[in-house]
Design a protein around this nucleic acid. Structure first.
Lengths: 193, 193
DNA sequence: AAAAATGATTGATCTATGTTAAGAAAAAAC
DNA sequence: GTTTTTTCTTAACATAGATCAATCATTTTT
């Protein structure tokens, strides 16, 4: 049940069996159907989540009602609106399952309790936040500096299985282009090889 | 000398006169000439800085050797490469003064000492980091969702004085367009009004 | 299996921004 | 206060990606 989250945490801090047991007592699992939302934009995000199985997208609507996908979260990833969690303000992003998905949730208050009881988790979540920031910076730098085609190829390299699991129009929304443009880019790439 | 940084800190935490005095003992000021770098890309960023006077730009070079400006830091702003400071890795950004500039620097080790001696500063810098992350998210969301013209107008609104202090080609690099395009956008805007 | 819904492709056309190159204007240096 | 350097503008042309509209392919529902 909690094997995967344990392996994930072990990568950054080491816990005793006892500490991990205590930790699990705060966890709640939640199953989501395809297209079901884990979070709506404007709602308060009072949790942080770990993807046990499945896949979600984090996105927002721009001024012209167009969707932009910030990232995809597959198994073994953490998911949530950090902005809302940290500030207590309404979420700027929405989060939606793209498949049947199982997430493990930690409530905001429980998170504080965990910090208190097992201070090692302060370190764990600080590192997680920093990594999120850093990953976001990288993503933005790439987006600024590469063409849509380069970005698409980089995405395929990072997630070779993504075309099997995520519809193309969502990949387009992640790349910041229209589905039509992505279709053409794929056609070009096929010709090149 | 340290009036400005005091006012800045007072906005988020309250310190006794004594605590602030102790804090100032860790501070070093540095003057930069126009076009002088505070940090080069690839160097380790082992400080966080506060702009007392002047203006700097934080930027990086993309794969095609083009400059992208992440942000401008005017008086009363904090400046540094958080990624490098937090991870200890080489900086992904470079920071350059755009005017005669005076910054107050806190070394990485001193920062740890400050946290230790005056724990209130943990809170201060945590809030600062969160705000940096949040501001970056906003900036990116805007950039994704608005046209260059809308972004330019938003920038003018946020920093009405910017055209007096920052050359237009730097503003273009901030907006992610060429100087020629910005020139055209300005022309269009002038016509519209 | 048929119908409906969803997702992907294609073509024609349009638009914002890039590129190149030349001057004009402003600022800095002498 | 000329000269030199830096910054800004303009024009002609090129291009990536958007838009609109139609069609084709694939899944899902009935």
């Amino acid at each position: 049940m909690f094997d995967q989250i344990k392996a994930n945490i072990d990568k950054k801090i080491s816990l005793t069996e006892e500490e991990f047991q205590r930790f699990t007592s705060f966890l709640k699992t939640k199953k989501l159907r395809k297209k079901q939302h884990l979070l709506f934009e404007g709602d308060k995000c009072d949790f942080t989540g770990f993807v046990n199985e499945g896949c979600l997208r984090t996105y927002f609507l721009d001024n012209h009602a167009k969707e932009h996908i910030i990232n995809f979260s597959f198994e073994d990833w953490w998911v949530g609106d950090l902005y809302s969690l940290l500030t207590g303000n309404p979420a700027i992003y929405a989060i939606e399952a793209l498949e049947e998905t199982e997430v493990i949730l930690i409530g905001k208050d429980d998170l504080e309790n965990i910090y208190h009881e097992i201070p090692k988790f302060e370190r764990f979540f600080r590192i997680l936040t920093q990594n999120a920031y850093i990953a976001f910076q990288r993503r933005v730098m790439d987006n600024f500096s590469q063409t849509a085609e380069e970005n698409y190829q980089a995405l395929l390299k990072k997630f070779p299985f993504i075309t099997q699991r995520v519809p193309q129009y969502h990949i387009a929304a992640y790349l910041g282009i229209t589905p039509e443009s992505l279709s053409r880019i794929r056609k070009d790439l096929a010709h090149k090889q």
